[in-house]
Design a protein around this nucleic acid. Structure first.
Length: 182
DNA sequence: GAGCCGATTCACT
DNA sequence: GTGAATCGGCTCA
């Protein structure tokens, strides 16, 4: 897949298109079942106030990883689309490297391995040192879904601005989303 | 340079 | 359902 082209569109389109894709990182990962879109003119987006040292990656080339720390504790993984727009990866359905992820998470329940942005990064051992990596080369792999899945849409989670935008997407019927869709 | 606060998770009640 | 943990970036002075 031509990832440069795939990511060179609005984050809302990309967020939808990513549902059902398989993401792996250094031999662990799974099916992307939940994403959220963030746009440059979106008050909830880190890029809303322009380029800063933290958000520099978000304004770089498409198809790169943008990683940041949340609440001083967790890491969150995003995929950069057009400059200033990105897709937050919120949940995976684990498929490969289960044992590795169980050890890192200290849990064996597949619903607790990658269901949530912070959990996902802990399970895959992703942190700030992976900020800016290109998604089409190791340790990343990204494979599109074999068929286009049924997608649920909802409002985003955990934000205080632009809370009404329906920019959260999930794989219909998946038990692995971080929260159920209304 | 001080103070505020968040794209969260977990333990505990 | 509620609150603690924890820290870098942003805002304002």
């Amino acid at each position: 897949m031509d990832l440069q082209k795939f990511f060179d569109r609005s984050s809302v389109e990309v967020a939808r298109a990513l549902i059902g894709s398989e993401l792996t990182f250094a031999g662990a990962g799974g099916i992307i079942v939940e994403t959220e879109a963030y746009e440059p003119d979106d008050p909830a987006s880190h890029s809303f106030r322009g380029v800063t040292p933290r958000t520099r990656t978000m304004f770089g080339a498409p198809a790169h990883a943008y990683v940041y720390r949340s609440y001083g504790i967790h890491w969150c993984l995003n995929f950069v689309c057009r400059p200033g727009s990105a897709v937050l990866i919120r949940a995976l359905q684990p498929t490969v490297g289960l044992q590795q992820m169980e050890i890192r998470r200290g849990k064996t329940d597949p619903l607790l391995l990658c269901s949530g942005p912070g959990r996902l990064c802990q399970a895959l051992a992703i942190s700030i040192e992976h900020d800016g990596l290109f998604l089409s080369q190791p340790p990343f792999t990204l494979t599109p879904p074999p068929i286009s899945p049924i997608i649920d849409t909802g409002i985003r989670i955990g934000i205080t601005k632009a809370v009404e935008l329906p920019w959260r997407f999930g794989l219909h019927g998946s038990a692995h989303v971080s929260r159920k869709f209304a």
